[in-house]
Computed example of a mutant assay.
Amino acid sequence: MKIVIADSHQLVREATACLLRSTMPGIIVEGASTGVEAMNRYADHTPDVLVTELLLPDYSGLELCKRVRQRWSRARIMFLSSIDDVGMVKQALGLGACGYISKNCRPAELAIALQKAVEGEVYLEHDLATQLAMVQLGGNGSIGSTGNRLADMTQREVEILILVARGISSQTVAERLNISVKTVANHLSILKGKLGISSALELLHFAVDSGLVQYGRKGSDGTASLG
């Protein structure tokens, strides 16, 4: 089995690779720190499964999933994320991901998820699967209002929310996503309407509360800044 792991943290990539090699003898693991690097690794190695975090420095795991699936329609993509939100699970599955598990999962569960992915099955961590089922049945389970609003957002809106909340300019967002600045502005306007907020500060607070970014220094590492 060949795996590519896309995560911005080297320690996470190497620890995950070490774990997989110890539990799945013969597995080949390649790492990537950005979405662009993950695309290149996929082209070079044609892995059985691409494992990605939701938050990457250049664009999100959702955008990576979309781009990989557009180029390789049979690609198997598994999310291994620190964000265990049912809204993100729905976004990922809607883009063709074959599974979603959190970084709080048992080590053995990752191996099981990868094996299921290779076999062509969809795998969700138990708690996430339960929450998703409850939402689909009309209940709210343990999902708060933030999660419900995330579930109503489109993939593009989530992408733009992550980048803008990181303090990245609309011009740079447009260049990264290959869209116009006007389109970015339109998405932001629609997004604010959906979320019922009116200012950039409220937008940042929502992104932080939902776990999409973290307070800290401004930059490309998934942190956010008010300045």
Score class of each variant (00 low, 15 high):
Ala75Met: 04
Glu63Gln: 09
Ala97Thr: 04
Val208Phe: 01
Gln214Leu: 09
Lys116Tyr: 11
Ala32Ile: 06
Ala15Asn: 14
Arg106Ser: 12
Gly99Lys: 04
Ala97Tyr: 06
Asn178Pro: 01
Lys103His: 11
Arg74Gly: 13
Leu212Glu: 01
Glu37Gly: 13
Asn148Thr: 13
Lys66Ala: 14
Ala117Trp: 05
Asn104Ser: 12
Arg149Trp: 07
Gly193Trp: 03
Glu53Ile: 02
Gly216Ile: 00
Arg76Thr: 06
Thr130Gln: 11
Gln70Phe: 07
Glu125Lys: 08
Glu63Ala: 07
Thr52Arg: 02
Thr52Trp: 01
Lys194Gly: 08
Gly216Ala: 02
Leu62Ala: 04
Asp127Glu: 13
Ser142Thr: 12
Ile28Asp: 15
Glu175Lys: 14
Gln171Pro: 02
Trp72Cys: 05
His187Glu: 10
Thr146Phe: 10
Cys98Gln: 00
His45Lys: 10
Ala32Tyr: 00
Glu157Thr: 03
Tyr123His: 08
Val184Lys: 03
Leu188Ala: 11
Gly99Met: 06
Asn178Met: 15
Leu11Asn: 15
Ser169Ala: 01
Val51Tyr: 01
Arg71Thr: 15
Ser225His: 04
Trp72Arg: 08
Ala15Ile: 12
Leu226Cys: 15
Ser33Tyr: 09
Ala200Asp: 11
Phe79Leu: 09
His205Glu: 13
Leu212Gln: 05
Ala224Thr: 04
Gly196Gln: 04
Asp127Ser: 14
Leu54Met: 11
Ile190Gln: 14
Pro25Ala: 11
Gln155Ala: 15
Asp209Asn: 11
His9Ile: 10
Leu177Gly: 02
Tyr123Pro: 04
Glu157Ala: 03
Asp48Glu: 08
Leu50Ala: 04
Gln91Cys: 07
Val158Phe: 12
Ser81Thr: 10
Leu11Glu: 14
Leu56Tyr: 00
Leu93Tyr: 05
Pro57Arg: 04
Val213Leu: 02
Gln115His: 09
Tyr100Leu: 02
Gly61Glu: 09
Ala207Tyr: 06
Ile190Pro: 02
Lys90Leu: 12
Thr34Gly: 01
Gly35Ser: 06
His126Ala: 08
Thr146Pro: 09
Thr16Ile: 11
Lys182Val: 15
Leu20Trp: 07
Ser82Glu: 14
Tyr123Arg: 13
Ile28Lys: 15
Leu11Val: 13
Ser60Met: 03
Gln70Glu: 03
Arg67Asn: 01
Val208Tyr: 03
Ala224Ser: 03
Arg76Gln: 09
Leu56Thr: 06
Ile168Arg: 05
Lys192Leu: 01
Arg156Trp: 10
Ser145Ile: 14
Asn104Gln: 12
Ile143Tyr: 07
Leu80Thr: 05
Ala207Leu: 03
Thr172Cys: 15
Val4Ile: 07
Gly138Met: 02
Val173Thr: 06
His45Arg: 10
Glu37Arg: 13
Gly219Pro: 05
Val118Met: 02
Ile168Gly: 02
Val4Cys: 00
Ser142Cys: 10
Leu56His: 05
Val181Tyr: 15
Ser142Lys: 10
Tyr123Ser: 08
Lys218Ala: 10
Pro25Thr: 13
Met153Leu: 13
Gly96Gln: 04
Thr34Ala: 00
Gly31Ile: 12
Gln136Pro: 08
Gly26Phe: 02
Asp209Arg: 11
Leu203Cys: 00
Ile101Arg: 01
